[in-house]
C-alpha cells in the first residue's frame, strides 16, 4: 500500500501538521519532566523555562525521603496487580460462559448487562460506601478492589472474542470427558490469551489511574494509592511546583511504560474488541 518515494517538498509540508500536533501533545509531558528536575522556585520565573539549567533529582529525593511516596507507590502496585489478575479470571470465566455455554436466559442476561453500561459508576458510590462499611471493608485493600473485579465491559470484551473459538474443538474435548473447568483452563484460556492481555492492560491502567473510588474508600493515609496521595500533596504543597511535578512523573510513568510494553494488544482491544461479534 505505502508508496516509497523520495522525500519531496510536498511530503515535508504534508508532515508539518502531524508534527505540530505531536509537539502540542508532548509539550505538557515534557514540561512536567523538565519542571520535576528544576531547583525549587525555578519553574515560577518569567519566561517560563521548559527545561532546567542544571537538572537536579532533589525533588525526587524529597518525595521518597520526606513524603513517603515509596509507600504509596507500593500501595498502587498491590491494588493494581491484584485487580488485574482477579479481573482477568473473573471476567474471563463469565465471558466464556456467555459466549460458549448454553443456559436459559443467556442472551437476555447478557443484553441487560450491556444496557447497564449506560449507568455511571459514580451513581452507586455513596450506598456502596455504606454497604462496605457494614461489611467492614472501608479502608481495606479488598474494599478498593471490589469495583475493578467484575466489569460489564470486560465480560463483553471476552465474550466477543470467545465466540471465535470453534465449537468443534470444545465439543471434542467434552466427548473426551473433560470437565468444563478443565476445558476452560487448558483449552480456552490459551486460545483467548490475546484478549486477556488486552483486558489485563485495560484493568491495569484503569485501576492505576483511578481516583474517585480510592479517594473515598481509603481513609488511612498510609494505604492511599499514588493518585490520591498526589492530590493530597497538591493540597499541601501547591506552591512547590517542582516537587509536584516530580510526583506527577512518578505517577504517570508506570502507566506509560505498561502502555508502551503492551501497546499492540491494548490498541487491538480498543479497535477490534467488537468486530468479531
Amino acid at each position: 500500500m505505502k508508496r516509497v518515494g523520495a522525500l519531496g517538498v510536498g511530503t515535508i509540508v504534508f508532515h508539518l501538521l502531524p508534527l505540530l500536533g505531536a509537539i502540542l501533545t508532548l509539550v505538557p509531558l515534557v514540561w512536567m519532566v523538565g519542571a520535576s528536575l528544576m531547583a525549587q522556585g525555578e519553574a515560577n520565573t518569567v519566561p517560563p523555562p521548559l527545561w532546567p539549567d542544571a537538572p537536579t533529582f532533589e525533588n525526587y529525593r524529597s518525595l521518597f525521603s520526606r513524603l513517603d511516596m515509596a509507600r504509596h507507590f507500593f500501595n498502587s502496585v498491590v491494588v493494581t496487580v491484584s485487580a488485574t489478575v482477579l479481573s482477568v479470571l473473573i471476567n474471563g470465566m463469565a465471558g466464556y460462559a456467555f459466549g460458549k455455554l448454553r443456559f436459559p436466559g443467556r442472551d437476555k442476561i447478557f443484553g441487560s448487562l450491556v444496557a447497564a453500561l449506560v449507568v455511571p459508576a459514580q451513581i452507586g458510590m455513596l450506598p456502596l460506601f455504606l454497604l462496605l462499611r457494614e461489611l467492614g471493608l472501608v479502608n481495606t485493600y479488598a474494599g478498593v478492589l471490589i469495583p475493578y473485579l467484575s466489569s460489564v465491559f470486560g465480560i463483553f470484551l471476552i465474550r466477543q472474542y470467545v465466540l471465535s473459538v470453534p465449537d468443534d474443538l470444545l465439543d471434542a474435548a467434552r466427548i473426551d470427558g473433560a470437565s468444563e473447568f478443565r476445558i476452560f483452563w487448558t483449552l480456552v484460556f490459551p486460545l483467548i490469551r490475546p484478549i486477556l492481555v488486552t483486558l489485563a492492560t485495560f484493568t491495569f491502567l484503569g485501576a492505576w489511574n483511578d481516583f474517585m473510588w480510592p479517594l473515598i474508600i481509603l481513609t488511612d493515609t498510609t494505604k492511599q494509592t499514588l493518585p490520591v496521595a498526589l492530590a493530597n500533596l497538591s493540597g499541601e504543597h501547591v506552591q512547590d511546583t517542582e516537587l509536584m511535578m516530580a510526583g506527577a512523573v512518578l505517577t504517570v510513568l508506570p502507566a506509560l511504560i505498561v502502555f508502551l510494553f503492551f501497546q499492540k494488544t491494548y490498541v487491538r482491544g480498543i479497535t477490534q474488541g467488537g468486530v468479531k461479534g
Binding site: 460506601f129 455504606l130 462496605l132 462499611r133 467492614g136 472501608v138 479502608n139 473515598i216 474508600i217 481513609t219 488511612d220
Partner: peptide, 11 residues
Amino acid sequence: EKLVTSVVGRS
C-alpha cells in the same frame, strides 16, 4: 472530609 469519612466508615 477524611475525618468524617473515617467516622462513618468506622475506620
